[in-house]
């Protein structure tokens, strides 16, 4: 890293794509997409496990998917996560205009929405465990459900810690060519979390409600 990279970028300056202006930024970008390809496979194995183990044969104790899931909560969680995806788009929009303050503001809104989502998920799991007798060890359906949805929740938590760390670490630095790729990649990760959730609410909750 050269001192040139650490120079603060301000509105009105070039370059217009600070995240890809350095070789380091380009490498981070490629490496991260490679990682996302791997993440796709990882979540596919959890989805495959869930689809194989959500039938009545492996649902030996506790309620099945159709009785267990409530669509109101899932719908609210979906809208919150989808909105947080849009707010991180706004953050990157302001990053491309080199407006650090507005980028931090929209990242902050993204984090707040992500925390709300996480809180609702914890509430959902708490209800299942305490009142519905649906736990990780109750049957194969329970294990597959918590492994898949819980792993996604873990990704949400990791993404939140990542974004908050970046925001705090760079709060006084402002935007420069060294940290712009970092913000860009964190927002890609956040979008990917939403991509996975789209399949979770479709395959787990909606198809579970249909009994299929």
């Amino acid at each position: 890293m050269s001192s040139d990279q650490l120079q603060r970028l301000k509105p009105g300056q070039s370059p217009h794509e600070p995240e890809k202006a350095t070789l380091e930024g380009k490498n981070k970008f490629l490496g991260f997409w490679f990682f996302l390809g791997g993440e796709t496979v990882l979540f596919a194995s959890l989805f495959g496990t869930y689809l194989a183990l959500n039938g009545p044969e492996s649902n030996t104790s506790g309620p099945g998917p159709a009785e267990l899931f409530g669509l109101e909560l899932v719908f609210i969680m979906t809208v919150i996560l989808l909105t947080s995806s849009l707010t991180s788009v706004y953050a990157i929009y302001h990053m491309k205009n080199l407006d650090f303050g507005k980028m931090q503001l929209w990242l902050g809104i993204t984090v707040a929405l992500g925390l709300t989502f996480l809180g609702l998920e914890i509430y959902e799991f708490y209800e299942y465990v305490m009142h519905e007798d649906h736990t990780f060890t109750s049957d194969a359906f329970g294990s597959a459900f918590y492994a898949l949805v819980g792993f996604h929740g873990g990704h949400v938590l990791f993404g939140l810690l990542w974004i908050v760390t970046l925001m705090v670490r760079n709060s006084k630095r402002g935007l420069n060519l060294y940290n712009a790729p970092k913000f860009y990649i964190a927002s890609l990760y956040w979008h990917f979390i939403d991509v996975v959730w789209v399949f979770i609410f479709t395959v787990v909750y909606l198809m579970g409600k249909l009994g299929g």
């Binding site: 996302l36 796709t40 596919a44």
Partner: peptide, 25 residues
């Protein structure tokens, strides 16, 4: 390249889901 990485991932993902589901069902 991102498209190549992602679609390779999607290809393996589809095979994985297909294999796990057909083994059981």
């Amino acid at each position: 390249l991102p498209a190549l990485f992602l679609y390779s991932g999607v290809f393996v993902a589809l095979l994985t889901v297909l294999a796990m589901v057909t083994i059981v069902w």
